[in-house]
Design a binder for these strands. Structure first.
Lengths: 149, 149
DNA sequence: CTAGACCTTCACGCCGACGTCAGGGTCAAG
DNA sequence: CTTGACCCTGACGTCGGCGTGAAGGTCTAG
């Protein structure tokens, strides 16, 4: 398909798609006329790109991990590069921190609007320090903890 | 206290603190010399500002809701302005969406690195569409739903 | 009195993911 | 052939939360 169709099917502007190519995130074929020709897999790829961009990863980082992205249900190609995995772990940690910050901000908004958290939330905050929210427990539900960076 | 001390106590640069004032987020007193003089409450205010900024609210929005922020444990001054509450509800929704996006991105990273979610996660993803993750349940644990915007 | 730490107000720089022209090809339908 | 929808490659603009000087007052210890 050409860029316009991919744009419609992904909800991303053609400009953005060209930008992704410029950044090495997509590498469409070219027709003799110079027109870009995209495949079906690019639809999934674009969705993945948008997801990661929305999470705050920059295009350079995404470019590194995209080769493992297509994910049409195939086996993991293996532990990829070791230092890459390290970087991914940091990104993951970053995302988790960001989720916690968002949760804190949301709780703050709820406090302002008077809409307290689920039922048991008549608690006061200490003058300063930890928010003392109802079990502020990290948003990371994962069991296996990453190696101490 | 002067700007330097507030900066040290909050971990925010003096430049940022001046910027906050410029944006109407802080309104410190002034000494005859022109030096800014901050109060204790400004420490909490700055923390609140940083929390909200980190959640993606812009300074203009924060400026609107900050009057209700100091939160030294005092009673809610009331439902504030009605259209303001509406805006806050939208911000809250935005934050919740952002949390969901982060969760999706994190799951994607886990998929790439091979680290699947808690135990039961040998599921495949459909060719396209919903991620079919283990109960992707919205990050919003609140009981009372906001009015249908 | 003087050094030096701290403060003041401009005012330009930055970054990243695009938006938005400008100027010009491609291509299928009529 | 012409129209109109689509595509191409530059290349500059944007936006927000500051960073980073520059040029100059303030204040306190010695």
């Amino acid at each position: 398909m050409r860029i316009g169709e991919l744009a419609r099917r992904t909800g991303v502007t053609p400009r953005a798609l060209r930008y992704y190519e410029e950044q090495g995130l997509l590498t469409p074929e070219r027709r003799p006329s110079g027109y870009r020709e995209y495949g079906e897999r690019d639809v999934d790829a674009v969705h993945g790109i948008r997801t990661l961009l929305a999470a705050g990863l920059n295009s350079a980082t995404i470019a590194e991990i995209l080769p493992g992205l297509p994910l049409p249900g195939r086996r993991r190609p293996g532990p990829t590069c070791p230092e890459l995995l390290n970087g991914l772990a940091r990104e993951r940690a970053r995302i988790t921190r960001q989720m916690d910050e968002l949760a804190a901000a949301r709780a703050l908004l709820d406090e302002i609007t008077g809409a307290e958290a689920p039922s048991e939330a008549i608690r006061r905050r200490g003058a300063s320090g930890a928010p003392t929210s109802p079990s502020p427990q990290s948003s990371d539900r994962r069991l296996v903890r990453p190696p101490r960076a």
